[in-house]
Design a protein around this nucleic acid. Structure first.
Lengths: 340, 340
DNA sequence: ACGATCGCGTAGAACGATCTACGTGGATCG
DNA sequence: CGATCCACGTAGATCGTTCTACGCGATCGT
């Protein structure tokens, strides 16, 4: 009867095949109340026989899409890839499908990406390291369940957050360097829009607090570069070639630290003898012998898993906000060892 | 009249505001025929005033979703990130939104990811380095316009492909090593399902051809590992510690080459003096001084841009297949230089 | 002058699901 | 034994778009 535009079976096809109503099939699909075991079995058999899969676009109009939007600013940094792995692992076996949107580190693109995801009726959002202003974050979270990763706002009731303790991460780094007898510890950070709550900001604060804690407040020095690798390289090159070069360089993330290692090698400064270098994130590249980069593990995959867990809980009905803070952990390697 | 479930304006809201029919608004949205400038202006004004954006899920039921699915097996390899950058750049300013699905290097996940994208009525697919069997690729491409990147099947009429000449890439590497006077050149490759058309396979062929071209057929040696970093590391460690260690190691991609560099350093083998190491892909990490890895550029970002262009053409009506092959380019760095 | 054509706009039927409201038997209960 | 309730299943509205079919007035061609 129905003109089969495409060969694809619809809920109607299944209903006819099983000899029941569309509503009955729908009930089976949604695990709704009021379905006898026999009817369910018949419908399930038909679904299997016809190889039927519900069309998400149609479901979206009344129900859910079982689709999650994951927003990342860029994916060259393996930190994001690790988070995504965590999300993916947690979502295995669930009906949810995570889809990643990349905003290319531009906040205009980021805003329109959020809109695109809202237009597509995503059930929930996991938003990593947002760059837009806080009011946009709140407005978004009121429209759709949202979990933020790598953004701190523990007071918010509108959304959940999942983070490592970024202040502590920087502190661990400084403590370690200090315990090696180093005092002139400078930090390489990054320019970031709307800084409060942002990860670089907290890591800077942790650095400054730790320095003060060791009585090194006069040696506090935080330098900022743009995000691009060449900018980071230029800044570290400048710092390393100074006469009053620092004894140690704490880089706000591993990507910056790897650039610093590169520049040090290029100008012939020995790491760690002439300068110790330490990163944060403990991404996979730290482990490689040519880097052997001391770094503070922020358990990116765990962040992803926790974010996914938070969002599942939200979709299951939780309405109060939760804010998760993982403990960072120092991983010492050659780039900051006496016997390096 | 209509019960506003959510505050969001619909096409009906716009129609009422502009004092026209829903069809008229739809026509404006779709740039359809039969709209007077005055009506268009009125509608556009209402759209702007109400801040209306069409709901993609609803459009999907009859029309298009303006959504592209991008399939990648994993995103730790910056090669994928570069491709995605290229796609994103090309799609800026177009109405299309690319969304990335990651299959975690499992072909079961990959299949279900494709299904998820089909269920979501994506307008087109860009599928990077597929691992499922060729018949699935053809079946998919017949359902939805699909462009494959990093998969060779130049004869196919069902889909477009965008690749660098992977045979040539490996040849360039071998030629270069040979020109340095090296003869015992071994290759590190990877286990890959359904090998024909896959990138590792073609790179192996290019290697073998080049070796034969230089009369080195007796020295041809291709070793395979699993994809995981630890497996690659273990394999390279084994090779490097052999008594009859090769003079040069051609790695099928940069990720493997970086592992090889690490293992060489770990066991105290000097690169390039004791062994030259060369990768393929020329990802960003090659440039870092601690790696300084010779690599063959495959222009990943260009692959992405071309793939996006191909898909736009398809959606604009092209029905014949196109197969693009870019020229690879050798970038010599310290890991294979005499004066390294 | 009159039918054909064209340009513009609208009514209403899809699209494929979900969900509310209701009908229908059979068991339960006072 | 009749009223009530429950478990199961269905009819039909609904979601927000697009698209086809058609109406209507003005212009064109002969």
């Amino acid at each position: 009867m129905a003109i089969e535009r495409t060969g694809r079976p619809t809920i109607r096809t299944v209903a006819e095949d099983a000899g029941v109503s569309r509503s009955a099939v729908s009930k089976v699909l949604c695990n709704a109340y009021g379905v006898s075991p026999e009817l369910r079995a018949r419908v399930v058999a038909s679904i299997k026989r016809l190889d039927y899969r519900p069309q998400t676009a149609a479901r979206a109009m009344r129900g859910r899409t079982f689709t999650w939007g994951v927003l990342a600013s860029e994916i060259h940094n393996p930190f994001f890839a690790d988070i995504l792995s965590g999300i993916g692992r947690k979502l295995e076996g669930t009906p949810y499908q995570p889809l990643l949107g990349v905003s290319q580190s531009s906040h205009e693109t980021e805003s329109s990406l959020v809109e695109a995801m809202l237009d597509r009726q995503m059930d929930g959002l996991i938003w990593i390291a947002p760059r837009v202003t806080s009011d946009i974050l709140h407005a978004t979270a009121r429209l759709v369940p949202t979990v933020f990763v790598a953004y701190h706002e523990a007071g918010s009731e509108d959304f959940d957050t999942v983070n490592v303790d970024d202040e502590k991460a920087a502190q661990l780094a400084v403590d370690h360097l200090h315990s090696m007898g180093l005092r002139k510890i400078s930090m390489i950070s990054v320019n970031w829009p709307d800084r409060v709550g942002a990860v670089p900001h907290l890591r800077e604060r942790g650095y400054a607090m730790a320095m003060r804690g060791h009585g090194l407040q006069d040696l506090i020095e935080v330098m900022h570069s743009e995000e691009s690798a060449v900018d980071v390289g230029a800044l570290t090159a400048r710092v390393l070639s100074r006469r009053d070069r620092p004894e140690a360089l704490l880089c706000w993330n591993d990507a910056a630290a790897l650039e610093a290692l590169s520049e040090a090698k290029r100008v012939g400064i020995d790491v760690p003898h002439d300068v110790a270098i330490i990163g944060i994130d403990n991404t996979a590249f730290c482990r490689l012998e040519q880097n052997s980069l001391t770094s503070v593990d922020v358990f990116a995959e765990g962040l992803g898993e926790n974010a996914a867990r938070m969002l599942i809980e939200r979709l299951d009905g939780r309405t109060t906000a939760k804010h998760i803070l993982l403990e960072p952990q120092l991983n010492v390697r050659r780039s900051s060892s006496k016997n390096g």
